[in-house]
Simulated assay, not measured.
Amino acid sequence: MSLESVPPKYAQLVTELQRRIEAGQYAPGSAMPSEHQLIDEFGVSRPTVVAALRVLRDQGWIDSRQGKGRFVRGRPALASLENARAGQVRLAGSEAAVPGEVLAAGVVDASNRVRTLLGLDSSGKAFLRRRLLTADDAPSELLSLWLPLDLAEGTDLTSGTPLEQGVREHLESRKGVVLDHVIEHIVARMPTGEEARVLAMHKGTPVLVVYATARDAAGRPLLVVDTVMPADLHELEDAYPLA
């Protein structure tokens, strides 16, 4: 499922670069503008540009050639059906490219749902990194990253400073793990008092919660990202081919 809301800067850049490729402004086989050129033209940070180019590469719009740069492939055959999933977006994007603040980073007792999703031992302890994301200077999403204690150890996730890298890239480079796939669960419920306060929600408004569990190729859960969103600010959409 994909989340329709005010997109972060790197997602806006992805949309514009896709538009240029479709319009022929960047023709198939031609070199993409360099990172520095995109930074200067769009007035964004390097992490924003890197995150956007990574999404375009993963979706098949461009490819990278060692020592030569990035080149246009063109519009993928199923591009109109390939919406980025919530977990994919949150794992790939640089924290520094998304407005918000780090609310917590430390060891806590995980909820029963997170314990089950992560397969935690009887202690139920997990590392939590929680961020409040904003859009138009207003609270938009409450994003919580849950990790087993050994996976969080030795990473920059324990810092209160936004990561310049995406979470996936950071963990794969620091811990040597490989995130293979994501399983998402979506629930609707009323917010807790703390969620309602932090998100400045109107009384009686429910929330949508997306639990995205990233696993390795063997199916072992590595981390959980849960995103709490006021239901009056977001909607869910999915697109898929008919075989």
Rank of each mutant, 00 (worst) to 15 (best):
G106I: 02
E22H: 00
G166N: 11
H36W: 04
V225D: 10
H36P: 02
R70T: 00
K203Q: 11
W146S: 05
T161D: 14
K68N: 12
R189E: 01
E169S: 11
D226F: 01
R113M: 13
L145P: 11
S123I: 04
H202I: 13
T116Y: 06
S80W: 05
V72N: 00
G124Y: 07
R19Y: 14
E184V: 06
K125H: 15
W146M: 09
M1G: 13
S122W: 05
V210D: 09
G124Q: 02
R70E: 13
A231I: 14
L103D: 13
P47H: 01
S45I: 01
G69H: 00
L13V: 08
P33H: 00
V107M: 01
Y10C: 08
W146A: 03
A138H: 06
R189T: 11
R20S: 02
R70W: 07
L223W: 07
Y10Q: 14
A196Y: 02
L179M: 14
A188M: 13
G124E: 02
L147Q: 05
G176L: 04
H185R: 15
V50H: 08
P139G: 07
P206W: 05
V89N: 06
L17F: 08
L78V: 14
G154C: 09
G166E: 07
S45K: 06
G106C: 06
A152W: 08
D137W: 09
V50F: 03
V14A: 00
V167H: 05
G176M: 09
V178M: 03
A77Y: 05
L143W: 09
H202M: 08
G74W: 01
R115W: 10
Q165Y: 03
D150Q: 15
A138R: 13
S45H: 00
F42R: 10
R113E: 15
A31C: 05
S123Q: 11
G219F: 00
E16T: 14
P148N: 11
T192L: 13
L171Q: 02
I183T: 09
L151M: 12
N112F: 01
R113K: 13
K68E: 15
T205S: 13
E195G: 03
E101K: 15
D63H: 13
V209N: 00
A97C: 04
Q66W: 10
T155G: 01
G60I: 12
A135F: 02
A239D: 13
G193H: 10
R168E: 14
D58R: 08
G106R: 10
L3G: 03
L163W: 05
L103A: 04
H185G: 03
A214K: 11
S2N: 08
I186R: 10
T15N: 12
R19H: 12
A200F: 02
G60N: 04
A152I: 11
Q37P: 02
E22W: 01
V187F: 12
S122T: 15
S140E: 15
D216H: 10
T192Y: 00
V209M: 11
R20K: 06
S45R: 06
G154D: 11
L147G: 06
K175A: 00
V209H: 01
V55G: 07
Q25K: 11
S173Y: 12
S122I: 03
A86H: 13
L179S: 03
T116E: 12
R90D: 07
P230W: 06
R19N: 14
A96H: 08
L53G: 08
D156W: 14
P33L: 09
I21M: 10
